[in-house]
């Protein structure tokens, strides 16, 4: 049903003089070819109306100094992650990440759409008929490469390198402090409503720890994105010298609250630090990374 409506709208758009003007307008401007996960797109130089399809892309374009015109919101939160400086910017919501509102997107006449094959690969054809679309292959652990890709499309390569260098400098400071504390292992735990996740190196946060040379417990150094636990019987997998604990929805039931007042919790020897879910977990990108590293410096200093 949705697909049919979309098709009808697209057909209409193709023949409608006002709507199709946006495309012809961008064709007359000089454009540069950007190679990306699903091919090559011709992006106008210095795009002004950028739309993003996930919070990772939102973080990245904001970090690169561009205010996007439209963005999706995380599935269950329904608003932009709190850590992002979005209050004073007019960003149209495109609905939840899983179902971006393409009609709305088309009305906004963007001149560049940023997203990932992982999330929206199946929408690529539709999206590129709305505006030139640049897709990264995946999200999360590949955030630095994605940042470089999107920066190229936005003509902000220098800014991207500066951001990454800044993060590397922050990493070095933390690494110095970390070594002086005897390299404690960092366990990264996120409590969802029905399970507990242990983040592995294949996630954004895991990659960031690796990038800074911080050690993880052996139970959390395997391949993949995250490990899911349902029963406190496996509590020992949470163990680390430093246990970083984030809660996805502390108010509407978070599994760790039940674990915490069971006898199992007493088995953990590491120091537990509570961390902010919005940038440690929901956030993916340089702005999130910067705040994570600020927190981490404080935590390792306190340890």
């Amino acid at each position: 049903m949705v697909r049919e409506i979309l098709l009808a709208v697209m057909l209409l758009a193709a023949f409608h003089p006002i709507l199709s003007k946006a495309e012809s307008g961008s064709e007359t401007r000089a454009c540069q070819a950007i190679e990306h996960a699903l091919g090559s797109s011709c992006v106008s130089q210095n795009p002004l109306r950028v739309a993003v399809l996930d919070t990772g892309e939102l973080d990245m374009v904001l970090a690169l100094g561009i205010n996007p015109i439209a963005s999706t919101t995380p599935y269950q939160v329904g608003q932009f992650p709190q850590y992002l400086p979005t209050e004073h910017i007019q960003i149209q919501s495109l609905g939840v990440v899983q179902e971006p509102d393409l009609e709305q997107l088309m009305r906004l006449k963007p001149d560049l759409i940023l997203g990932s094959q992982f999330r929206h690969g199946r929408l690529y054809t539709l999206l590129s008929s709305i505006a030139p679309t640049v897709f990264s292959e995946s999200v999360g652990a590949s955030w630095a490469d994605n940042l470089r890709l999107f920066a190229r499309a936005l003509d902000k390569d220098t800014e991207a390198e500066n951001l990454l260098n800044e993060i590397d400098r922050q990493c070095q400071t933390i690494r110095h402090l970390y070594d002086s504390k005897g390299q404690p292992s960092l366990s990264i735990v996120r409590s969802m409503q029905t399970h507990i996740r242990l983040y592995l190196p294949g996630s954004f946060i895991g990659e960031l720890m690796n990038r800074c040379g911080l050690l993880r417990p052996t139970a959390q150094s395997g391949k993949g994105f995250a490990r899911r636990l349902r029963s406190p019987q496996q509590i020992d997998l949470l163990e680390g010298d430093i246990i970083l604990l984030s809660e996805y929805s502390p108010k509407q039931g978070s599994l760790v609250q039940r674990w915490r007042h069971s006898g199992f919790w007493q088995r953990l020897r590491g120091q537990v630090y509570e961390i902010d879910d919005s940038y440690w977990m929901l956030g993916i990108g340089p702005l999130a990374a910067k705040q994570v590293l600020d927190d981490l410096e404080q935590i390792i200093n306190d340890y």
């Binding site: 409503q193 029905t194 929805s249």
Partner: peptide, 17 residues
């Protein structure tokens, strides 16, 4: 409210968890 669904997903199916 997806949050609410997740919170009682197991309960709705009849579970002792």
């Amino acid at each position: 409210d997806q949050h609410a669904l997740d919170a009682i997903r197991f309960w709705l199916a009849g579970s002792l968890s």
